[in-house]
Design a protein around this nucleic acid. Structure first.
Length: 214
DNA sequence: ACATTAAGTGATT
DNA sequence: AATCACTTAATGT
């Protein structure tokens, strides 16, 4: 397991920092669909994702959640980082999207690292940048795309994040993520099938034009 | 065989 | 695009 951490991060962090991360943190394996952090939780560690993916959602007053962005391999959570520094509570909810392996870093260490390691500073900034980008994209879709386009984009993105063209998901879960109703999704799904963009089975959607990440 | 859950459909707003 | 009411299909027990 340590090997995995080294593999994934040895080119991102200075060696001394990698050593320190290994010394201070610990591994944790989490199953699919587990809520790791909820709104209002106090944050005690920062996750580095080694395997799998985590989705970050917010919730409106009626308890409907909607998707903000995904954390993928090599990512960490920008929200968590700021929360940590201020000792604040989480503003969002994090749910595992697949079986996930993370490395938990106690937040007390992070502040020192900010001073001690250039690579850590870079990592934090870059993390912010990519989260920012991803959020801008979601805002963009919300504002300018119709439901069908949003759905297709959602499916493709999800396939990319999970590194597989076939997704195990139900129409109603999709509806949840996109904050719409199941019926609407079912109908749009049918359109996408007619357009040869996807195929489906019960609990299962396959994106036809799937390009794995570089 | 029966109950439960996922998905499809027409009508209405 | 959302909601309702209802049907049909797939799965679990």
């Amino acid at each position: 397991m340590e090997k995995l951490l080294k593999e994934r991060y040895e080119y991102v962090f200075e060696k001394k920092l990698v050593d320190e991360i290994i010394r201070e943190g610990q591994f944790r394996k989490i199953d699919k669909d587990i809520c790791i952090i909820d709104k209002g939780d106090k944050i005690t560690y920062m996750p580095l994702i080694l395997e799998g993916a985590i989705k970050i959602v917010d919730e409106d007053k009626d308890g409907h959640e909607y998707l903000l962005y995904y954390l993928e391999i090599g990512d960490s959570c920008a929200m968590t980082m700021t929360c940590c520094l201020g000792g604040k509570k989480s503003e969002i909810r994090a749910i595992t999207e697949s079986n996930t392996l993370i490395y938990m870093i106690p937040i007390q260490r992070m502040e020192d690292w900010l001073i001690k390691y250039k690579s850590w500073r870079m990592f934090v900034f870059e993390s912010y940048e990519s989260r920012m980008k991803e959020m801008l994209e979601t805002i963009d879709s919300l504002a300018f795309l119709n439901m069908e386009q949003r759905l297709y984009k959602y499916l493709k993105n999800r396939a990319m994040v999970l590194q597989s063209p076939s997704l195990e998901i139900t129409h109603s879960r999709i509806a949840n993520d996109l904050n719409t109703s199941r019926v609407v999704i079912s109908r749009l799904i049918k359109k996408l099938i007619l357009d040869d963009k996807i195929t489906t089975n019960r609990n299962h959607v396959t994106v036809l034009e799937f390009s794995p990440k570089a």
